[in-house]
Structures are given as C-alpha cells and as structure tokens.
Amino acid sequence: MFLINCPFCGERDQSEFSSGGEAHIVRPKQPTELSDDEWAEYLFMRKNIKGIQFERWNHVHGCRKWFNVVRDTSNDKILSVYKMGEKPPVNYK
C-alpha cells in the first residue's frame, strides 16, 4: 500500500487507483500483418520486472485519467510520475 501522486489531483491513496500494467507497449500499427508470435508478444508476454518498472495507472475513483508511473517493484517506491504521451524519464533504466 502506498501513495500515488496523480498528476491531476495530487497525492492520493493507492486504493483509489487501478493498475494498468506495463507501459509503452505499442499497439500494432497493422494488426492484419502480425504473425502468431508477434500477437503473443503483444498480448501476453510481459517484462514483469523486479526493480524499476514503467507502468500505467488510472485514477479510477478520482479524475479517471490515465498516466504513467516509474516504480521500483522490489520495494514499491514511486520514483516518477508523468502524463500519457510524455517521454519516459531517461534517468531510469
């Protein structure tokens, strides 16, 4: 359990948010051309990182807006929050 700093509403309890999983998975531009392996990669395969992970969250019980979070999954510390469409911060790898 932790606090998330919503870029629109400020710091709120994590229970107000829903997790959208790994961020920056690009939707295929031409779905009809995808092979089965590429579909599996897009739909199912996840980095599932222990450490610094880029992920999407939705403030579902608040402003209902989506945004991105950089979080260390080994200790749940949030390192950075940035809006959808913004470039991910470069100082985390």
Partner: peptide
C-alpha cells in the same frame, strides 16, 4: 520465474 527467465533472455506471460 520472470527474473530467472530474463537471465536466459526469455520473456514469460506472467505478472507477479
């Protein structure tokens, strides 16, 4: 499992 898979350059359909 994903951590170990990553050592072999493999990705799994898992979330922990």
């Amino acid at each position: 499992s994903s951590v170990i898979a990553n050592m072999a350059g493999l990705k799994l359909p898992l979330e922990s």
